[in-house]
């Protein structure tokens, strides 16, 4: 990063010439190199997994780097049938979808009220939510298990959605409250004068105005809930109930008794593909959502 700062770049510099001021040139070579290196660090391992998923177990060990001599599609059928990766995926989508929707609804309701209304326990509730960011989820697990079970929700998607929502509230309330505070008061007052009630004001005026902030917090929550490992592991006992994270973990653990490395790799590829497709389709929206949320 140490470049010659005395050679300011001129706005009029022409393209593609070596006579460019050093700063830009060095930076370009360096940055391109580093960017490319990082891209390789991501693409190569993933490509390797895909390739390995097509090999036989034997070939994986004798020739870890080469292309498969034969494309063993049956690895994928085996992974699909034995491990139920498809079910894990659907379970995950269902729970994360429900969890994020409920998180955003309850989170924005609480955040809105806490940010824009004055009442006696306001500060108390706000701090209670925000303090939750410091609680290690692990600490709550055992009592939480009994609570969920007592509600009759153990092993159900709904139960897990409620738990995901509860544990996403601290972060969500913290950021949305900050966001709601920045929204102009004038609009709200005008709406009230026009006779809109508190509910209409929230759903028809404030929510649309806060859309960008909501989208950006929702993206954080999708990422966070998608990666949950502990909660489903504990709260979704029994076979066929797994989400992706704990499902893959149990496939990996069963390797200890019944090694099937190619099958494991195939399971991983199956798990990766829909995520990849969804990301490529929605990446524009994700970036747009984050862009909008970034300005406050």
């Amino acid at each position: 990063m140490q470049t010659d700062t005395r050679a300011p770049e001129k706005g009029t510099a022409t393209t593609g010439t070596r006579k460019q001021p050093k700063s830009g040139g060095v930076l370009n070579v360096f940055s391109h190199g580093f960017l490319a290196l990082w891209a390789i660090m991501i693409i190569v391992p993933l490509a390797w997994v895909v390739m390995t998923a097509f090999k036989s177990d034997d070939e994986i060990f004798t020739d870890p780097l080469g292309l498969p001599s034969q494309w063993h599609w049956e690895n994928f059928t085996r992974a699909w049938e034995k491990a139920g990766i498809g079910d894990y995926f659907l379970n995950t989508v269902l729970v994360v979808g429900g969890g994020v929707a409920l998180t955003m609804l309850l989170g924005s309701m609480a955040a809105y009220v806490l940010a824009r209304y004055e009442f006696r326990l306001n500060k108390f509730f706000y701090l209670m939510f925000v303090a939750g960011m410091m609680f290690p989820v692990f600490l709550a697990l055992v009592p939480l298990y009994f609570i969920v079970d007592n509600l009759g929700l153990l092993g159900t998607h709904f139960g897990l959605i409620l738990v995901y929502t509860a544990y996403s509230l601290p972060f969500t309330v913290f950021f949305l409250a900050a966001f709601f505070k920045t929204l102009p008061h004038g609009v709200a007052e005008a709406a009230m004068i026009d006779g809109a009630g508190h509910y209409r004001l929230f759903f028809q005026v404030m929510m649309p105005m806060a859309r960008s902030g909501l989208v950006s917090v929702a993206i954080f929550n999708i990422i966070g809930q998608w990666n949950q490992f502990l909660l489903p592991q504990v709260l979704m006992p029994g076979e066929g109930n797994n989400l992706l994270a704990d499902g893959i973990a149990s496939v990996a653990v069963s390797q200890r008794y019944d090694p099937d490395f190619s099958g494991l790799m195939a399971s991983m590829v199956i798990a990766m593909i829909p995520a990849f497709v969804a990301y490529v389709i929605f990446q524009r929206q994700i970036q747009a959502g984050l862009t909008a949320g970034a300005i406050k």
């Binding site: 697990l141 055992v142 009592p143 298990y145 009994f146 079970d149 007592n150 153990l154 092993g155 592991q233 504990v234 709260l235 979704m236 006992p237 029994g238």
Partner: peptide, 20 residues
């Protein structure tokens, strides 16, 4: 007080429940 009707599983962390 803290234990409830309990018939299902606690996944990997099941054991603490046994005593209860």
């Amino acid at each position: 007080r803290s234990v409830l009707k309990t018939s299902a599983a606690l996944g990997l962390l099941a054991v603490p429940a046994v005593g209860l």
